[in-house]
Design a protein around this nucleic acid. Structure first.
Lengths: 227, 227
DNA sequence: GTCTATATATCGATAGAC
DNA sequence: GTCTATCGATATATAGAC
């Protein structure tokens, strides 16, 4: 049974892992999935990997630094869904697909989702996290803008509004209102799903994702009511 | 070295608080507001109240029991908003008002909001929490039902007529779809507000509450798109 | 890069005195 | 109802050996 003994059977010396840094991230995801971010500890991760409690500190300055690395992985995984979504022809459909992917991501990678929203990391301290987040938010905002400024002046600098209109820059505000509502709705569905309000199992995930997508379309359709 | 005698100068006996149980709940809310549920500890609450670390255990079996009491207070406070909302004439307006109140509650009682969603209490162990939650959910569901089944029995009080509601009744499904979308949207806006995505200060709270209310109306208007 | 050993904390919870 | 005293567990993080 060499499987229990990871890679050492020959030397009796100190244990050398191939890539402790990567292994720590994996194990962190595991542990967070089992007991939540709040109960995640460096000590337990070390135990599970069979290394000394001090070993992680050779790779991560502290607990938060490890969590930041996990968070980067989370955004990378979510961003991997974008290419497929990009191929949906209309902007509203892309937003619905993005919402669907977001809800499914929350379910399939619960630990990563939890790290994104509950790790409580200091933003200023981990710029790499923000960089990893950017592709997702950029894509999202592009979809919303494509909806709220659909005609020829998509790239237009100054949307010189008609004096009779109700606001100085109606398109920009409209985009922001819609974006906020969509973000809140997608996130809300994901949270409700994780709390079990849709039941359990893959069919609950599908139901939540589908309903979130529908709600997205409903908000897009009624976006004139937002402000 | 008994030099640090706190507030007792008259009696040399053991310190008696007027109502330690209530004081513990207050202090828990305070501490959670400052450092989050996850960092709340019985020990620190005792310290802040100037009582022995063991004193709380005369009133609460353990840490979770205290958190459960806090959670009950949270629902009670939220439920205190209901009478005012009840006076809004139309169901959609009531739902918008409820959403507004929910978002404002999250901001004004951040600690209580956090306990509701992040305490991780065992539901079966604290039935009093579920009892405290009921008035709010009942009112919410009644509003939704008044919308989706507006014909005959709109005026009648519909408290817990069909708690399960997963039956084959078509209107019941429509109500459930709408209820889920509304809940997700309200909660999503509250979370985004607490994360600072609306900025800071009372004007950020108002903006978030107003947008959430608008999104509610948009979803109500487009509820035929849900499923 | 990992180990051993350790300093330092903080916590939950209990027993028994008053 | 509160106190003193205490046990046992667990955590973060550092220093120095190999």
């Amino acid at each position: 049974m060499p499987s229990t003994n990871r890679t050492r059977a020959r030397k009796a010396g100190p244990y050398h892992h191939g890539d402790l840094r990567a292994a720590l991230i994996d194990t962190a995801v595991e542990l967070i999935g089992e007991r939540g971010v709040r109960n995640f500890s460096m000590a337990e991760a070390s135990r599970r990997l069979g290394v000394a409690a001090s070993a992680p500190y050779a790779h991560f300055a502290d607990r938060d630094a490890l969590l930041a690395a996990v968070k980067v992985r989370a955004y990378d995984l979510l961003a991997a869904e974008l290419p497929g979504i990009r191929e949906v022809p209309d902007p509203a459909g892309r937003l619905a697909a993005l919402t669907r992917a977001y809800v499914r991501f929350a379910a399939s990678s619960r630990a990563l989702f939890e790290v994104i929203y509950q790790a409580g990391l200091d933003k200023a301290r981990y710029p790499e996290v923000e960089a990893a987040e950017r592709p997702v938010t950029d894509f999202f905002l592009a979809c919303v803008l494509a909806l709220t400024a659909p005609a020829g002046d998509a790239g237009g600098a100054a949307p010189a509004s008609v004096p009779g209109a109700d606001g100085p820059v109606p398109d920009g505000d409209a985009a922001e209102y819609l974006a906020t509502a969509l973000e809140a709705t997608a996130h809300g569905h994901a949270v409700l799903l994780l709390e079990g309000e849709f039941g359990d199992g893959p069919q609950a995930v599908s139901a939540a994702a589908e309903r979130a997508a529908r709600a997205t379309l409903a908000l897009v359709a009624g976006r004139h009511l937002l402000r």
